[in-house]
């Protein structure tokens, strides 16, 4: 399982790098889905099969479909791509990237100083997760349902096309 962990970790990092450097939104989205699949494999390797299934179903399924719908509704043309490519000028980000790479090297150094704690070889089953979720974390579940309701109402309110802006769009097509 070590090979699975390190290989999918490398895939996740590379595909996330591709996400933040693409100029076409759909290409970036496809790389993001690859990255989420890699993280799901890592969850599976870590002994969390329920989290892995949720990652694929909800993240790579539902949330990415929302992104695809919005990209299709925006229907951005080729000029947006060329503009993105101009914005991704290496001069603008090479300095911060070198400084951040130094910080990452420090993080790797600091985390490799301590040896000893390895991942437990046991698998945490969905049953245990469910018992914890509807036992001590019941209040959290209620709060999550309130949050989802607030998100639903907010999205409905924001996504509604009111008469004023519809009339304005009708004037100037």
């Amino acid at each position: 399982m070590d090979v699975v962990f390190y290989l999918s970790g490398a895939v996740a990092i590379v595909s996330t790098l591709m996400v933040i450097t693409r100029s076409n939104a759909v290409h970036a989205l496809l790389y993001l889905i690859v990255s989420l699949f890699a993280v799901a494999l890592i969850f599976f390797a870590l002994g969390a099969p329920f989290a892995a299934a949720l990652e694929v179903i909800i993240y790579a399924g539902a949330i990415m479909v929302l992104f695809i719908f919005v990209i299709m509704m925006l229907n951005l043309g080729i000029q947006t791509q060329t503009q993105e490519r101009e914005w991704l000028n290496p001069k603008a980000w090479i300095g911060p990237a070198i400084l951040s790479a130094a910080l990452v090297c420090e993080l790797i150094y600091a985390l490799t100083l301590h040896k000893g704690a390895v991942f437990a070889a046991v698998e945490v089953t969905p049953k245990a997760v469910g018992i914890a979720l509807f036992g001590p974390y019941l209040l959290g579940v209620e709060l999550a349902s309130l949050l989802l309701l607030a998100g639903l109402v907010g999205t409905y309110h924001l996504g509604r096309r009111d008469e004023r802006s519809a009339a304005r769009e009708g004037d100037a097509p």
Binding site: F5, G9, H114, V118, F119
Partner: peptide
């Protein structure tokens, strides 16, 4: 999973 240190997961 007996030999992957926890730090590598946090690092990722």
């Amino acid at each position: 999973m007996a030999s992957v240190p926890m730090e590598h997961g946090l690092l990722l």
